[in-house]
Design a protein around this nucleic acid. Structure first.
Length: 425
RNA sequence: GUGGCCGUAGCUCAUCUGGUAGAGCACCGGAUUGUGACUCCGGAGGUGGCGGGUUCAAGACCCGUCGGCCACCCCA
């Protein structure tokens, strides 16, 4: 019988890695809370139409990357490929756009892509969205906030901020036409992917990796020339604010977001330390999406960060993936000793809820139990045998330091533990 | 979806130009019977991803398939 394996691209996050994940999640939650953001949790499954209407019918995500299936009622459902659509749906449905909202969420997303470094089919994002603010001060807040996060995580050195403005939908459409007209002259000279993108997503040609395509692009019309006055002004204001708080950035006029709903300011935090998937965090403004999904027209801005990429970056920089080790390992041989140990340890847990204590289970000699105690990484072993039981004592043995083994009265155990800084730090 | 590289014990890998598989680490047990680490001894663990083919003989060669990694594409 062949073993059942996980679905391709949907890996397990193993015990060696979960501490890093938890650290990142805790830092994210704390930072967002400190900026006044509230957490929202949405379902992982939504109606397929939600993603088609928000992300864009002709994007790769919708065309070939979604996990879509019919449920038992015949409704077409889709495992969410990103979080913004569901978040917007939720705030409309639950009546949360009556006022300014600063929200965040986290969880798994699903895209049927070919897995590679920094890209899984089930991956995890933290999403941050703000509804009801049209001015670029909130764009700046997004960036300032993310910048603080990198500092808190200690990865700010490895990240570069890129920003751009893609203008109003009308400006972008006008530019798009101009670009297509220009590139159409050189259609045959373009690489194959770019020729295809001429129909599907012309702006994407701007960041083609093909050299010949890039040389053709040198004389192409620029997005900047087509920018509407308001977008240009907002972008200038954003830059002024970033300069004022001292955040470095590069203006990347080729930076175009992949999803249809973006407008005006877009930004990305990128790294060159993760191979081809260098975007750790990306976002921008999406002022028309709420209206497009049936809500009262509401300006919005948001970003998403890729947890796997963040964790990779952290580990790339040598972030420990050490297992979490207990402080105390309890060794007991014989029925009475085991019983005594269980009762005493439960009392100890009442007294020291933070203390990590592993009680040996599964029997074995003192010797084999001590081996397990050592391997557990615990600082001390608490040992019960027949002597301890009859004398109402427990033996304490240091497994790491030089301290001598000692046998103390059970009544002294709590006192002993609170006196050991190494155990209760 | 396309391409390159790879697939031998839980992990990292060896097995020279085809002759029926090995090491280190990890795991389990033991070294005068209540004590870990270091050392020593012993043990368990592989239908060599799977299926076909070539051959007297294949882990090694060929084909297919599945899986992994990386890149393209796309994107967080």
């Amino acid at each position: 019988m062949s073993e059942i394996r996980a679905i391709r691209g949907m890996g397990d996050i193993l015990p060696a890695d979960t501490p890093v994940w938890r650290a990142v999640e805790a830092t994210v939650a704390a930072t967002l809370t400190s900026y006044g953001y509230s957490e929202i949790r949405m379902p992982i499954l939504e109606k397929t139409a939600l993603f088609k209407r928000s992300i864009g019918e002709v994007t790769d995500i919708v065309e070939k990357e979604m996990y879509t299936f019919e449920d038992r009622n015949g409704d077409s459902l889709t495992l969410r490929p990103e979080g913004t659509a569901g978040c917007v749906r939720a705030v409309i449905q639950e009546g949360l756009i009556n006022a300014t909202r600063r929200l965040w969420y986290g969880g798994p997303m699903f895209r049927h892509e070919r897995p590679q470094k920094g890209r899984q089919r089930q991956f995890h994002q933290i999403g941050v969205e703000v509804f009801g603010i049209a001015t670029p001060d909130i764009d700046a807040e997004m960036i300032v906030l993310s910048n603080r996060l990198w500092k808190a995580l200690g990865i700010n050195e490895g990240l570069q901020l890129q920003i751009n403005s893609i203008g109003s939908p009308a400006a972008r459409a006008a530019y798009r036409d101009a670009l297509v007209t220009y590139l159409g002259q050189y259609r045959d000279a373009l690489d194959q992917d770019s020729q295809r993108r001429l129909e599907s997503n012309p702006l994407r040609i701007l960041d083609s990796k093909n050299e010949k395509t890039q040389s053709i692009l040198r004389d192409a019309p620029s997005l900047e020339q087509y920018l509407d006055a308001e977008s240009a002004q907002d972008f200038a204001d954003l830059r002024r604010l970033l300069d004022a708080v001292g955040i470095d950035y590069v203006v990347n006029r080729s930076l175009v977001r992949g999803l249809d709903y973006y407008n005006k300011t877009v930004f990305e935090w990128v790294t060159d330390r993760l191979g081809a998937q260098g975007t750790v965090c990306a976002g921008g403004r999406y002022d028309s999406l709420v209206g497009q999904l049936g809500g009262k027209p509401t300006p919005a801005v948001g970003f998403a960060l890729g947890m796997e990429r963040l964790v990779l970056l952290l580990q790339e920089q040598g972030a420990g993936s050490a297992l979490e080790e207990p402080s105390v390992y309890v060794v007991a041989a014989g029925d009475e000793a085991q019983q005594q140990a269980l009762v005493t340890v439960e009392r100890l847990r009442d007294q020291f809820p933070q203390l990590a204590i592993v009680v040996h289970a599964g029997g074995g000699s003192f010797r084999s139990q001590m081996k397990k105690a050592d391997k557990s990484g615990a600082r001390i072993a608490l040992i019960w045998g027949t002597d301890e039981v009859s004398n109402a004592t427990v033996t304490v043995k240091a497994l790491r330091g030089q301290a001598r083994q000692q046998t103390i009265a059970l009544s002294e155990l709590g006192h002993f533990v609170s006196g050991s800084a190494a155990l209760t730090d």
